[in-house]
Structure formats: structure tokens, C-alpha cells
Amino acid sequence: MKYFYLEPEVSGGLGDNTVMDSSVHPPIVTRLHYEFDGWLGDVIVTSFPCYLVTEDVKEKILKDGFSGVRFDKVEVTTSELFEEMQPDLELPPFVWLKVDGEAGHDDFGLAEDHRLVVSESVLDVLRPLGISNALVEPFQAP
């Protein structure tokens, strides 16, 4: 099985209602609030150290039985910039994608440098759904 770094679109940042412990690296987030500044349409987005996917992607991941990931709720809001630049855009429902797998072993994992690593099977599912703004590079296990 081949594995790849997947660096998703950064569509915003952690909102004011995020609860995290930033005394450790990477920070431990216990409550996620993601504020969109804009959205180019990808089904996976990020703001370190968190990832979000659309509800449709969550259902596909669960249906296909991919390993190394679980889901949680996220508070999603839009910034003034979003409202100004994309006033007619309605965001799809998003969920928090929590990666807990081993890079190069599970379908979802985090590399030692904390970048997301996914299996080729995951890429095959995500590409047709929309990840055109993400950076994808081959992953080599250390």
C-alpha cells in the first residue's frame, strides 16, 4: 500500500470558542470552533492541529471502514471576510476529523512532523469528492 502526505486547504482558523492546551506540541484541542474566512470547495480543510471534513466524507469513510480516524462535532462559523467575499455561499455541514492512526500503517495517521498521512485508498475516495486545493506528496516512512 502506498501512503501520501495530504496538506489540505486552510480555509480559516481556530475560533474564539476553541478550548486547547497550548503548553504542549502539538496543542491538545478538547473543543473545536472553526471560523471560515473563505472556502474553495475542498471536502477536507485544516487549521493546525485540526482537520475538518464534510458530513458526506465522514459517511464515506465510515462506510469504507478506513482505520486511524474518528469524528467529533465542531462549531463552524464564518468571519466578516467570508461574508464580504462569499456572501451567497452556504457551507455544507462539517465534522471534526480526529486522526489517531499510525502514519504508513493505518489509512489515516500523523507523521513525526505532525503532517497528515493517508493511504492511497483514502486518496482514491477523496479525489473525486474534491481536494483540488490540497498538496499531495509521497510519504516515505522513516
Rank of each mutant, 00 (worst) to 15 (best):
V19T: 13
P27D: 07
V57N: 06
E59C: 05
L126E: 05
I28W: 01
G109E: 04
S22D: 14
V99D: 00
N17D: 15
K63C: 10
G101K: 05
P128G: 08
G38M: 09
V10I: 14
V10W: 04
I131E: 04
F108W: 04
P27S: 14
F66H: 06
V122R: 03
V53R: 00
F71K: 02
I61V: 15
Q86H: 08
L62Y: 07
G15F: 00
P49N: 08
V19D: 09
E83Q: 12
S121E: 15
F48C: 11
V45F: 01
Y34G: 00
S79L: 03
F66C: 09
H25P: 02
K73Y: 13
V136S: 10
F71N: 05
S11P: 06
D16G: 11
H114R: 11
Y5G: 02
V122G: 02
K2H: 14
V118P: 00
L62Q: 15
G12P: 03
A111I: 10
E75H: 08
M1I: 14
V69A: 13
G104C: 11
V10M: 11
E102K: 13
M20D: 09
S79G: 08
L52Y: 03
N17P: 02
G41F: 03
P138L: 12
S23Y: 04
V19H: 04
P128S: 06
D106A: 11
Y5D: 05
Y51A: 05
L135I: 15
K73P: 06
P92V: 01
S22A: 14
D72E: 13
L14Q: 08
E80G: 11
E59T: 10
P93E: 07
S22E: 11
E80S: 13
L14Y: 00
L81A: 12
Y51T: 03
L81E: 13
V45C: 05
P26H: 05
P93Y: 00
L123F: 13
G12R: 01
D106P: 03
S47G: 09
P26S: 09
V24N: 10
F71H: 06
T78C: 05
V43G: 00
D113N: 15
K98P: 00
D107I: 09
E112P: 03
